[in-house]
Design a protein around this nucleic acid. Structure first.
Lengths: 140, 140
DNA sequence: CTTTGTGCAAATTCTTTGCACCAAA
DNA sequence: TTTGGTGCAAAGAATTTGCACAAAG
């Protein structure tokens, strides 16, 4: 199964009609673990889809994230980042160079929240910030 | 010790000169656990400080958060929220009404991250999203 | 005096909206 | 032919910047 088909399956699984644009964006997110912004996605797809508009990218990302087909990350306060990997994992952002990594996390589901009973929890985001290996050594 | 003095201590502790505006903003954040936006802080302080400008509020919040004297939360993708409580705790936001709570968390420090050795972690944010008690019951 | 903080107005940037056109069922 | 998707241009909103004035040591 090629990556286009995998992307299509994800869309269908979440009840989203697989238009050409949506497929391209979904496929892009599943193939790039760079946690791109809407702008990055647009710039990368535009050369091969010259009619694509930024509005469509924004619309599509909002739709996909709203349906749960992708994750929308707010770890970077400037731009929303998107992640095609919807499995449980944490994120790390370097405060110096801005690089953004996935972090595998043990026990992310086992975090105990007191008084959680009253709330219906649907999402959990775990964000770490600090300095990446390269930047860490440059701190004076 | 009154709340103004407590706020002053916090500023001094983090090496920040306690101007009148900074003191007012720091004190506001320590007395309000509402996780306000810059705009809310400005609007609430303005009546008693008519010369206060929104620029100063933004400048001050950036300074305080940068020095670690307050927390800057990105749980709400629209506006940055600020928290005068810098102790370890998680946050919850209702996706329907937008209300924002603190959540006490057991084991927040014990979350195990593999491969953390290469990184210098300085901050950890744990965000839960879902539906609050009131909104939960209104879901159809 | 000299450095630092404040505040107004303007600029910047990310994102959404209004609306017309296009495509598919 | 009706519904939904796309895309352009414009609007909107949060935050930052440039610069002049005020304050504090």
């Amino acid at each position: 199964m090629n990556s286009r088909e995998i992307a299509k399956n994800r869309l269908v699984e979440f009840g989203i009609k697989p238009s050409l644009q949506r497929l391209a964006i979904m496929e892009y997110l599943m193939n790039h673990s760079t946690h791109p912004t809407a702008d990055m996605i647009f710039n990368d797809l535009f050369p091969s889809m010259p009619t694509l508009s930024k509005t469509t990218v924004y619309n599509t990302l909002r739709l996909l994230a709203g349906e749960g087909a992708i994750l929308s990350l707010s770890i970077d306060e400037k731009n929303v980042r998107y992640d095609g990997d919807i499995s449980n994992h944490a994120h790390f952002k370097c405060k110096k160079c801005g690089c953004l990594y996935d972090l595998p996390v043990e026990g992310m589901n086992s975090i105990h929240v007191e008084n959680k009973g009253n709330l219906l929890i649907t999402e959990c985001h775990l964000y770490y910030k600090g300095f990446c290996e390269r930047c860490k050594s440059e701190i004076v």
